[in-house]
């Protein structure tokens, strides 16, 4: 990714935490269009906090988060809505609405934000489900599906309005290696064929290698980014002990 391309996300001097407890201290990075960008780190290092700040669920203590040029920090009303339309989010557990079928889950934003006729919304939602490999499952309730299928349906829901950026929180958490690899493959395929930018929070090494163009590593004690780069490069040429341990799966 060369620096001539405008970044699609720019995080500047972000500090965040809960109450007096600081989790992230003055961190900055950029995400470029079309890349799969992984936020990695050990448990409790603030990966999910960072994600929640980037999607506007939490307000940082300081700093700016520019999504396609607009600052999501402090945005409200129309400007917040237009930023949120550019992003889609898959939550760790999928967060599908349990009282709706898969098709209704995926169709929801089409019904709310477009004037598409009913059958059009149904067809488009069914196509999104087909894209994530769930064609024919439209009439199922979320509770009738496995964890992996729920996450794939959540991705279909997140991308129904063709957002520029998809945020995925721990896509491989709680899945077996085969299902998890299938999900990684799906992420790569969508990134390459639909030119969506992915921001993925993960701590699973196999999954990081499989999907990431670039990784940032957060470290709990420093509360900062300790490494940035493609995963192979981080594994082979880092001088940070924590990053080395992470990529070589060594205990402290």
């Amino acid at each position: 990714m060369s620096n001539e391309i405008e970044p699609v996300i720019r995080v500047e001097g972000l500090s965040a935490g809960y109450g007096d407890e600081v989790i992230l201290d003055d961190i900055s990075f950029e995400v470029y269009p079309g890349e799969v960008f992984v936020i990695a780190g050990g448990s409790g290092c603030g990966k999910t906090t960072l994600l929640k700040n980037m999607i506007g669920l939490l307000e940082p203590d300081a700093g700016r988060i520019l999504i396609d040029g607009d600052d999501i920090v402090g945005a409200s009303g129309r400007s917040r809505h237009s930023i949120l339309r550019k992003i889609g989010v898959m939550f760790q557990t999928g967060a599908l609405f349990g009282s709706m079928t898969l098709l209704e889950n995926v169709r929801l934003e089409l019904d709310e934000f477009t004037d598409l006729p009913r059958d059009a919304a149904n067809l488009i939602a069914a196509m999104k489900l087909d894209l994530v490999g769930l064609g024919g499952y439209g009439d199922y309730m979320p509770a009738e599906l496995s964890g992996g299928m729920q996450k794939r349906a959540a991705i279909a829901r997140a991308m129904v309005l063709d957002p520029q950026i998809l945020f995925l929180d721990e896509p491989s958490a709680g899945l077996d290696p085969v299902t998890s690899a299938g999900l990684d493959g799906l992420i790569r395929r969508l990134a390459e064929s639909l030119a969506i930018t992915f921001v993925v929070v993960s701590h699973e090494l196999a999954s990081i290698y499989a999907v990431a163009d670039r990784v940032i590593m957060l470290e709990k004690e420093l509360k900062k980014i300790v490494a940035v780069g493609p995963p192979d490069q981080l594994r082979d040429s880092t001088d940070n002990a924590w990053v080395r341990r992470f990529f070589h799966r060594q205990a402290e």
Binding site: L110, L116, A120, L123, I124, V160, L161, D162
Partner: peptide
Amino acid sequence: CDGSGAGLLFYLRL
């Protein structure tokens, strides 16, 4: 042409 546009073209095909 985004996913919804593709939906329209696919609708014609169906």
